[in-house]
């Protein structure tokens, strides 16, 4: 890429579509190298990639909810009732 690279052109747009695959390690080596090379020359794309990486980290960090114990009991009881009814 030339030193006169201007952010927002076709190079940047082409790369944008593959950034999640890049973060997930699903791009092939040649495509990864192309992304790295572009990021080296385009600080705005690099910032964008970093903000996407952090977004994914936030989504992954959302606390898991556990099934309330009384709900679990209710479902097991309702299954038992269904079974009994089927066996009658």
């Amino acid at each position: 890429m030339s030193a006169g690279h201007v952010h927002g052109g076709p190079d940047c747009r082409e790369l944008l579509g593959g950034l999640s695959e890049y973060l997930d390690g699903e791009l092939d080596l040649a495509a990864c190298e192309k992304v790295r090379e572009h990021m080296g020359d385009c600080p705005r794309c690099q910032e964008f990639l970093e903000s996407l990486r952090r977004t994914v980290a936030h989504v992954r960090a959302v606390s898991p909810a556990a099934i309330p114990p009384e709900l679990k009991r209710a479902i097991i009881d309702s299954w038992e009732r269904l079974r009994q009814r089927a066996g009658e």
Partner: peptide, 29 residues
């Protein structure tokens, strides 16, 4: 996509570097 005329990308904090305050984490979640 970010436009060529957009301002700089807003800095989203790394969740691993958020202050330990529970309120801050809860707010982000």
């Amino acid at each position: 996509a970010p436009g060529a005329d957009d301002g700089p990308v807003a800095e989203i904090p790394d969740p691993g570097e958020l202050p330990d305050a529970q309120l801050e984490r809860a707010r982000w979640q």
